[in-house]
Amino acid sequence: MSWAIMNVGFYIIIFQFTNEIGAQTGWGKYEFFVFLATTWIINSIIQTFFMPNAQEFSELIRTGNFDFALLKPIDTQFIISFPRIDWSSLSTCMMGIGLLSYSLYQLMVVADVPLVLAWPVLFLYPLYLVCGVAIMYSVMISLAATSVWFGRNQTLYNFWFYLTNFSRYPMEIYKTGWGMGLWIAFTFFIPVLLVVNIPARFLARPLDGMTSADWQLAAFALCASIGSLFVSRRIFKRALRSYRSASS
């Protein structure tokens, strides 16, 4: 809770000095708060359902207790992905929904030029939330699976944090100078930039303002989420083949 308040407070301070993040990017104060709320919602889903299990997965590999998961007549990736739920992390999701509602109110009611939400957004936003969660889950399970080769991967969770940190800001900030390299890498190779940007873009800005490039990126995000799941599944399967258990 306090972290969320500090987070919002920090951006309120920044928006005292500027009206939007980058000239003509369309990410004004409340548009950005829609973005921030979307970040919280996706992150809280990841932290509630997947993060504790990914951490547990690494520990199971290190201690050799992963043996038991391999004995069960059920998909191994399923059984290690869902055993634990950290309900307390859902509070961030609630705050995200609160911030989202307030920001949308500001954009749709209070603003001089009110935002009009087209009905497809009601379908597109949740769809891309799911896509975002799928991409994040894929990155997380892939990183956790590398424990099979590295034995212990504490630093990989730092790596996860640094990697996903890129997804916390609008992708426009990377589209200049040397940031282009990051934009290409984190859009097309490890597509974490699509996780929040695409759903937030649908909700925060008018649908009829979408350019063909925006639509292409949205289509790519759909493919990227399916592709991420596919690649992470391959990495997981490869890790299972290399699993060597631990001495007893």
């Binding site: 050799g64 207790n65 004995l71 007549p73």
Partner: peptide, 19 residues
């Protein structure tokens, strides 16, 4: 090959590990 049918038909108990 970790066939589910096989995994339904055997069990492994390890004295020094808990499942």
């Amino acid at each position: 090959q970790r066939d589910n049918e096989y995994r339904r038909r055997f069990a492994l108990v390890m004295g020094n590990k808990n499942q």
